[in-house]
Structure formats: C-alpha cells, structure tokens
C-alpha cells in the first residue's frame, strides 16, 4: 500500500506540509515496510495549475492515497480521476501520520477541503 504524505522536510520526523500543490516534499512511503522515498516538489514556484501538476506527479508514483493538510478542487478532481484517495486535515510528524493511517483512524475526504489558490 503506497501512500504519499506532503511534508515540510525530507525525513519521517518532518512535519506534514499543510499544502498539497506547493508542499516542500512528497514522501512516498510503503505503509507496511516503512520503505520511503522523499522527493523535493518541483512545482513550488509554478504560477498556476500547481495542484493539477502535483496530482499528476503523484499519480505517476502509483500511490493509492494522498495525505495532506488541504486539497483544492482541481487537485482533488485530478487525484480522484487517477483513483487516488485523499485525506486532509493531517497535522504533526509524518511517521505518526503513517501510524494513524495504519490504525484506520484517518477518514477519506468526499470532496476538496479548500477553494482554488488557497495554498498560494
């Protein structure tokens, strides 16, 4: 089960980044083995459509679920089209989020949590 957590730093002790499209790092992690890869977000400085571009990026990494602070409508639509579940409202250290995810205490979002351009 591969998940993507938006992170302010590159390791599992980093805090979750509350923005999806313009997060600092994407941490792609296998929830069972805890093997992970952290990737600096190449889209931070793009001017527009960043949520879409980041969603496309994450979908190419074949993740099932994205866990982040907030997710706007374009990113949400793109992720859902790629059959990726979205969980927003995540706070705290990345490794704790993985634990919460495994325990089943995180709920999948039915729709975007914020309006467009929220993370600018």
């Amino acid at each position: 089960m591969k998940i993507c957590i938006t992170s302010q730093g590159s390791d599992l002790n980093s805090e979750v980044d509350s923005r999806f499209g313009r997060c600092a790092y994407f941490i792609i992690i296998d929830a069972e083995t805890m093997d992970f890869e952290s990737i600096e977000n190449p889209n931070i400085h793009a001017t527009g459509g960043v949520g879409i571009r980041s969603a496309q990026f994450v979908s190419n990494k074949a993740v099932n679920t994205v866990i982040t602070g907030n997710c706007g409508p374009n990113a949400f639509h793109t992720l859902k089209s790629a059959n990726i579940d979205v969980i927003t409202g995540a706070k705290g250290k990345v490794k704790n989020i993985v634990e919460q995810y495994k325990s089943g205490s995180l709920k999948t979002d039915p729709g975007p949590s914020v309006s467009p351009k929220f993370g600018l």
């Binding site: 527009g48 459509g49 879409i52 496309q56 374009n74 089209s81 790629a82």
Partner: peptide, 23 residues
C-alpha cells in the same frame, strides 16, 4: 500535451486525460 502546457491545463493520468478549460 500535459508536459508542454505552461498553465497545467491538461493532466494525463494513466488512460485518462483531464482538460481544465478555465486554466
């Protein structure tokens, strides 16, 4: 098409293409 678009108005996801006409 998604790579060339400077405004990220197209996304290609597996076998699906999304067009964001407002962008």
């Amino acid at each position: 098409c998604a790579d060339i678009c400077a405004f990220n108005a197209i996304a290609v996801l597996g076998e699906k293409v999304l067009v964001f006409s407002e962008l």
